[in-house]
């Protein structure tokens, strides 16, 4: 147990070991075949692997199908407002750097209604994992065009097909000053998804992970070819990013060595949408992290009163 900057009070059984069922919340109520299930499993596996205490882990979400995510975890969860997960997560982490913070957003959440927060959270570079579960559509509200809907793709709001080219979240995030971790993975490749989330968790800073995801009801066809034809996917690998898990080597044969330190190359890769590319595009831990703006050490109540008294002297008559 701890409050604010790392109190030392911790439960006596703190060295207890956690298993998968320690992280399992309510039964997930997403549609069968929804990519969210796969992300949920990967996240729970990650927590087991890292042995994160459930009570010291917070999943913050917005509104949308994927934002039900925290309900299915047995950690702390904050299922807040549409598009506003990032400010909440920032507040949590600024106040409690000791907590492990994960953010789960949909594409509408992250790059539409909450786009301003996405830009600034990237720049703040507060230590957290920010997953954008991108199914290219508004699912909860029944098939409206999202910013990442492919051009020409038909929806209830644009029955003639999306008029505009899809927004490229990777390219955009890489364009934001002080971005420190940008990765892309796909929900249908669990081993890669897990490895990417792990790399994101271990990164010190704001780790933005776009998870390509199928909506079995509205956008099943978007990634159909890529799911069936692994050769359509380039795997970006590097010791400083993610390596291709052994189990996938036979399937994903197009491996591209990409040093995540190389921002120019990352931007080039992100901009070229002719092929799907999964892996860590960019990573730099040397960027300033906003939570460190907090000046330590902390002071006791008595100390604060003393300092405040000194401060008030300048207003004394």
């Amino acid at each position: 147990m701890s409050l604010s900057c790392s109190s030392l009070l911790t439960p006596v059984d703190e060295d207890r070991e956690f298993r998968l069922d320690d992280y399992e919340g309510a039964r997930a109520r997403w549609c069968p075949g929804c990519g969210d299930h796969s992300v949920l499993t990967a996240a729970q596996r990650l927590l087991v692997d890292e042995q994160l205490k459930p009570e010291e882990t917070v999943f913050v979400s917005g509104i949308g199908c994927s934002s039900r995510f925290p309900h299915y975890m047995k950690t702390y969860g904050f299922h807040g407002l549409h598009g506003r997960a990032l400010p909440v997560a920032t507040g949590v982490k600024l106040n409690r750097p000791d907590l492990h913070v994960f953010v789960v957003m949909g594409d509408g959440d992250c790059v539409s209604i909450g786009a301003g927060h996405w830009v600034h959270a990237t720049r703040y570079n507060v230590d957290m994992v920010a997953m954008m579960l991108d199914n290219n559509i508004y699912g909860l509200t029944k098939m409206q065009t999202s910013p990442t809907t492919p051009q020409g793709y038909k929806s209830n709001t644009q029955p003639q097909g999306s008029w505009l080219p899809a927004l490229n979240p990777l390219e955009a995030t890489l364009g934001i000053t002080n971005a420190s971790f940008v990765a892309q993975t796909a929900e249908w490749i669990p081993a890669h998804l897990f490895a990417t989330l792990q790399a994101a968790y271990r990164h010190r800073g704001f780790a933005f992970v776009r998870v390509l995801q199928r909506c079995p009801v509205f956008t099943e066809d978007i990634y159909l070819d890529a799911v069936r034809n692994p050769e359509m996917i380039d795997m970006l690998t590097h010791p400083d990013g993610v390596e291709l898990p052994e189990s996938l080597r036979q399937i994903y044969t197009s491996e591209v060595r990409h040093d995540p330190k190389n921002l120019a190359a990352a931007r080039e890769i992100a901009a070229d949408t002719s092929r799907l590319r999964l892996g860590v595009l960019y990573r730099d831990e040397s960027n300033p992290r906003y939570e460190e703006t907090r000046h330590l050490p902390l002071h006791t109540a008595e100390d604060k009163i003393r300092i405040l008294n000194e401060e008030l002297d300048q207003y004394a008559v």
């Binding site: 409050l3 790392s6 030392l8 330590l296 002071h299 006791t300």
Partner: peptide
């Protein structure tokens, strides 16, 4: 400072 802060936080909590 980190350790001192932890002492403060713990002391306040206590």
């Amino acid at each position: 400072e980190d350790y001192h802060s932890a002492l403060v936080a713990t002391s306040e909590e206590l």
